[in-house]
Amino acid sequence: MNLRLLALGGAVAGAIALPLAMASAGPVGDEGRPAGAAVARAAVEAAGTRAAADGADPKAPPAEASRSPLLLGLGLATAARCGPELSSPDGVEAQTCVLSQGEDTWARTYYRNATGRALEAFLSLMGPEGRTVRTRCAVSAEDEPESCETPRERTRGDRAAYTAVTEFARAGDGPLLLRSGSNSRTDTGS
């Protein structure tokens, strides 16, 4: 009888300890990448795979909800609509998304600056009724993946009416190096 009780106690302790150990280990893969970039990349790849299987245009911006590993167990879904990953001949790479979670909407851009110098970047979230939120992003000269986002705001109207654009330029009155948007109509600067 005591042996059965000890075995049952061990099984209960293991059942409690295993999820805690897995949660403290964090997500597997994507080491060295910002967690937000991995989430957006996975959402874009999954949407492109689904679109290709459905016969749709795989380059069309996804509007699928995805689970963020940053929200472990909270039960909140984050919907991401991201434009294509773009790069400029000068060495700037970026992807810009509109994110929605619950009643909030905001914009986020994932970027990498391989130009060797600090840049100026502005991220704009444009919503219904001409409402715009603009954030200045500090783009250092480091050649590392980074992200920048606007403050979250309460969603007004249709979420599909929100778009985001990021513009990267040299400091001062420098030329536009890259414009990245949450829709499929984006371009590189001259």
Rank of each mutant, 00 (worst) to 15 (best):
G9H: 02
S88H: 01
P69F: 09
A7S: 02
E85V: 13
A15D: 03
P69K: 07
A23D: 14
G83S: 04
L3D: 13
P19W: 04
N2S: 14
A13E: 05
A56T: 01
A56P: 04
A42T: 08
A63I: 08
G48D: 15
P89V: 15
D30G: 10
G29N: 04
R33L: 15
M1F: 09
A80R: 10
G91L: 13
A80Q: 11
A37H: 04
G83Y: 02
T49M: 11
R67F: 00
D30R: 10
D30L: 09
K59C: 04
A21T: 10
E93D: 08
N2H: 12
V28N: 07
G29D: 03
V28W: 05
D30M: 12
L18T: 15
L6Y: 08
D57T: 00
A65G: 13
D54F: 03
M22N: 09
G29R: 04
S87N: 05
S87F: 04
D30S: 12
E31Q: 13
L71H: 08
A94Q: 05
G10M: 06
T49S: 14
A21G: 07
P62E: 13
S68Q: 04
V44I: 08
L6P: 12
C82L: 07
P34C: 06
L74C: 02
E31K: 14
A53M: 06
D57L: 02
L3I: 10
A11D: 00
C82V: 13
L6N: 06
S88E: 03
R50M: 11
A56Q: 09
I16R: 05
A17G: 03
Q95M: 13
A37I: 08
A94F: 01
G32S: 11
G83T: 07
L5I: 15
E31C: 04
S87W: 00
N2K: 14
E45A: 09
L5R: 15
M1H: 14
P69C: 04
L18R: 14
L76A: 02
S24W: 12
A60K: 00
L20T: 09
M1V: 14
D30Q: 12
G9M: 01
L20M: 11
G10R: 00
A35H: 06
L71G: 05
A47F: 07
A35T: 15
P89W: 07
R67Y: 03
